[in-house]
Computed example of a mutant assay.
Amino acid sequence: MRKTYALLAALAAAGLQPAAAQDTVSPTGIASQWITLGTHGGPVPHADRAEPSNLLLTGSEVYLVDVGDGAANQMARVGVPLARLSGVFISHLHFDHTGGLGAVLGLRFQTEAQNTLTIYGPPGTRQLVDGLIASMRPGGEAGYGVPGEEVHDPSIGIEVIEWRGGETAVVGGMTVRNVENTHYSFTPDSPQYGRYASLSFRFDLPDRSILYTGDTAPSEAVDRLGQGVDLLVAEMIDLEGLLGAMGPARGDQAGGPPPLLIEHLRTHHITPSQIGEMAAAMDAGEVVVTHLVIGNAGREDWRRYEAEIGAHFDGTITIAQDLDGF
C-alpha cells in the first residue's frame, strides 16, 4: 500500500519538522517501510524525479538501496537523519545508481557521524569508495580553516563488502540474499567478463520480504530469488516512449544515440509486460515500479503500464513517485 511523504517534504521545505517524520522508523523493531526516494532511471537528470535511490527502514535500522544523485537530500525530506544510516546496498556501478554516494560519505564525515557505515555492492565497489574517500581528503585537511584544527581521516568508520552474486548474509535484523542478474551480458572474450556484476537483492525482514531487481533484463535467477516475496520492487523501461520523446533524433535514426546504447536499452531492462511475467513467476504479493525510463510519459501511459503488467499479474500494482512509501 502506498504512503506518500510529499506532505513531510512540503513541511520540511517550510522549515517545519512534523512529528510523523520523527516516527518514520518504528522503535519496536517490527514494522518496515520501503521509500522510493528517487524514481527516475538516469543518466539524464529529470526536473520532477530524483535519480534511483530507496530507503529501507526496519525497526531502528536505516539502509539506502542504491544511492543516486540527491539521495541525502531526499532522506532529509522524509525526516530521516543521515546520521542514522547504517548501510548502503549498491546493485551495480552505473552512475545514476551511485552518484549520490559521494555526498552521503562527505556529509557524514563533515557532521562527524559516529556509527560505522557498511557499503555492500558488486565487484568494483571498493575501488569506487576508495576514490570517493580520496576526493574527500583535501576538504578534510582544510577543515573549517581554523589554525590548530585536528585533521581526521575520512576513511574511518567506512567498511566495504563486495558480493559477486549468490551470497547470503545476516545484516542487522534481516537476512539479505543476492543473485547476479542480466543487466550486463559480457561475453567470455570481453575484458569485463567476470570482473563486474549487476545484482538483485532480497531482504527477508521480521514482518515481510522485499525483492529489489535493480536494473535487469528478464532473469530466471531473479525469478527464483523472489519466490513468494511479499513486495517486488522492479525497474521498468518504455523504450518506444523514450525514443518518441527524442523526436527527430530518436535513437534508431541517423544522428541519434549510438546503436550500442539502443542495444543496451532493448536487452538489459524490463518492460511492463515482463514485470507482470516476473511477478507471476515469483507469486509476488504486490508490485512497485520504479527506475522509470519512460521519456515524457504521463498518467495515461501509467494506466497503460499498469494494464500491461496486470495482463500477467493480478495483485496490487503501483507506478511509484518520489517519496512514496510502502
Rank of each mutant, 00 (worst) to 15 (best):
E263H: 13
W302H: 13
Q22Y: 06
V44L: 10
V171H: 01
F89C: 04
L232N: 03
A19F: 14
D207C: 04
A13H: 12
G59P: 08
D48P: 02
R195D: 05
A9S: 09
Y120Q: 05
Q127W: 10
A279Y: 08
I317S: 01
P18F: 07
R195L: 09
P191I: 06
L211R: 00
Y120A: 06
S190K: 13
L16V: 13
M174H: 09
I309P: 01
E112N: 14
G148N: 02
Y63I: 05
G251I: 08
E220C: 01
D130A: 12
V229M: 01
I35E: 01
T316H: 10
V293C: 15
G106F: 03
V160C: 03
A284M: 05
R126Y: 05
G310V: 03
D66R: 15
G70A: 06
G87W: 14
A280M: 05
I119Q: 06
L231R: 00
G325R: 11
T175P: 03
V146N: 03
T316N: 11
I237G: 02
F95E: 14
L323V: 01
R224E: 13
R303S: 10
R126W: 06
I119S: 03
H94S: 09
L242Q: 14
N181I: 02
T290P: 00
G140V: 03
S219A: 09
G241F: 06
R303L: 15
I119R: 05
L292G: 03
G68T: 02
P43Q: 12
I309K: 06
R126C: 08
S135Y: 09
T24H: 13
H94M: 11
P123E: 10
T182C: 09
I161N: 07
L101P: 04
M278R: 10
D301E: 14
E306K: 08
V78P: 02
I317N: 00
A6L: 12
L93A: 08
M278K: 09
A134R: 08
A280F: 10
G124K: 07
L265N: 05
V88D: 06
Y193C: 03
P272Y: 10
G106M: 11
R304Y: 10
E167L: 06
D301L: 11
P258V: 13
E180W: 07
G143I: 06
T58V: 14
Q227G: 03
L132G: 04
V104S: 02
P123M: 09
G70M: 10
G59N: 10
Q253P: 03
